[in-house]
């Protein structure tokens, strides 16, 4: 990156370290922290949406929809999330390509040939002509969908609990005012449930943060990938030979996650006190007393 780093073999000590830490590979490592944060910022709202749908489906009066909602919300209790992560992206990828093959390809050529999964060039996703970053983005997108499905199920659990926790009396009052079930949902149930949902959602965010290293397993080049790649001992085939330094890289990642969770906790404390204002809960009561 810097001109003085042109020949790292001649460098020593701090100068070497500075050049080493600013090599192109390290820049990719630093950028991958962005990937993790990007994934978090996209996954969280999408998962919340999925969870919302799941929770509403589980409370639905239409039986098949309710069954679907129940299965969806309870699946994450029985099966470890990592299994979904190993499974869902491949299934999605092949599912998308299969659908596109139905549209774009010659139907006389079978898609499964022996152990091969073959679609014609036009149906490939992304097209093999597209640049590398499109392929990477596609990989990340698949990961985001997988994360959203799994964490959506967790969120559905939380939201379902929160909907059940909204005091009956509030809903009954709304009914007494002549609101229809839909209006009760929209005007009372959903606005009121957040204070009950927040502790669970905060917790879920923490779980999500701590699940991001699993991106590595999905083949996304995330911080774990680069930490392993950079930390491993390097021979003189590389510009910066060094012994096995993986532990330092992993410790750095550990600190990153501790900071993330610590910061999130601070933020959630603030939101919690905001949402408790005027609520018929212990926290709300305490705030009311403090104010008067």
């Amino acid at each position: 990156m810097f001109a003085s780093c042109a020949d790292p073999k001649t460098l020593e000590g701090l100068a070497w370290l500075m050049c080493y830490l600013s090599s192109g590979k390290h820049v990719l490592f630093y950028l991958s922290f962005g990937t993790v944060i990007l994934l978090l910022l996209i996954t969280a709202p999408v998962a919340l949406l999925f969870g919302f749908g799941g929770a509403l489906a589980a409370r639905s009066r239409i039986a098949p929809l309710r069954w679907f909602g129940k299965v969806y919300t309870s699946m994450v209790r029985g099966v470890p999330d990592i299994i979904f992560f190993l499974f869902v992206p491949i299934a999605l990828d092949q599912g998308f390509e299969w659908l596109r093959a139905k549209v774009f390809c010659d139907p006389s050529i079978p898609i499964r040939q022996g152990n091969e999964f073959l679609v014609c060039a036009a149906a490939k996703l992304p097209l093999s002509t597209s640049p590398a970053w499109v392929h990477q983005l596609y990989g990340i997108a698949l990961a985001i969908i997988a994360f959203s499905i799994v964490f959506g199920a967790f969120a559905a659990n939380v939201l379902r609990g929160a909907m059940d926790a909204v005091p009956r009396a509030q809903l009954e009052t709304a009914e007494a005012y002549g609101m229809s079930p839909r209006q009760v949902s929209r005007r009372i149930l959903i606005p009121q449930m957040w204070t009950y949902a927040l502790p669970g959602l905060g917790n879920l965010w923490m779980i999500l943060v701590k699940a991001t290293p699993l991106l590595f397993i999905l083949g996304v080049e995330d911080i774990v990938y680069w930490a392993r790649e950079l930390g491993g001992s390097k021979t003189s085939a590389y510009a910066y030979p060094h012994p096995d330094w993986r532990i330092y890289y992993f410790l750095a990642i550990l600190v990153f996650y501790l900071l993330m969770t610590w910061g999130s906790e601070r933020i959630f404390d603030r939101i919690r006190s905001r949402l408790s204002r005027g609520q018929a809960t212990a926290a709300g009561e305490a705030m009311r007393k403090a104010a008067t």
């Binding site: 790292p8 192109g24 590979k25 790649e229 085939a237 590389y238 510009a239």
Partner: peptide, 12 residues
């Protein structure tokens, strides 16, 4: 990750 067959150099 298999030098010198194939590897990621320091430019990434």
């Amino acid at each position: 990750a298999y030098p010198p067959y194939n590897f990621v150099n320091d430019k990434g």
